[in-house]
């Protein structure tokens, strides 16, 4: 099996069912925005999963790219890292099991994302 060191790192850091709390949880200027961002995560994930199911890799690349650029800014660096992985895998047309697994990991992280 081809191992991806970056992915192992991300997977190990975010293991378990513990909530992924935004690093901006204590920033009063950001609280409301982070909340909105978290509320919209299920939609984003649904769109990404749909693109994957339809094997629309171009759309998947673009959605992952957007999430990558935004998540870190809202205090969710682990989501940015996984999204980056998906963007690259989808862009390189690495469809199949590996990409599916990465998307599952992203979905898991996003489910656990919490504003506070």
């Amino acid at each position: 099996m081809i191992r991806d060191p970056q992915r192992d790192l991300v997977a190990s850091s975010g293991a378990g069912q513990a909530p992924l709390v935004s690093t901006l949880a204590d920033d009063p200027d950001m609280a409301e925005l982070v909340q909105v961002f978290v509320q919209e995560l299920p939609q984003r994930i649904a769109a990404i999963q749909e693109a994957l199911a339809e094997e629309d890799l171009e759309r998947l690349t673009s959605l992952a790219h957007q999430l990558k650029g935004a998540a870190g800014g809202y205090g969710f660096s682990p989501i940015t890292e996984i999204a980056r992985l998906i963007e690259h895998q989808a862009r390189d047309r690495m469809a199949g099991e590996m990409l599916r697994q990465t998307v599952d990991e992203l979905a898991d992280l996003c489910r656990r994302a919490s504003a506070c």
Partner: peptide
């Protein structure tokens, strides 16, 4: 920016 998340975030960050 086409991303709403970014268009929301930057003004909050440039507030000062």
């Amino acid at each position: 920016d086409d991303s709403q998340a970014i268009r929301d975030l930057i003004p909050a960050r440039l507030k000062g």
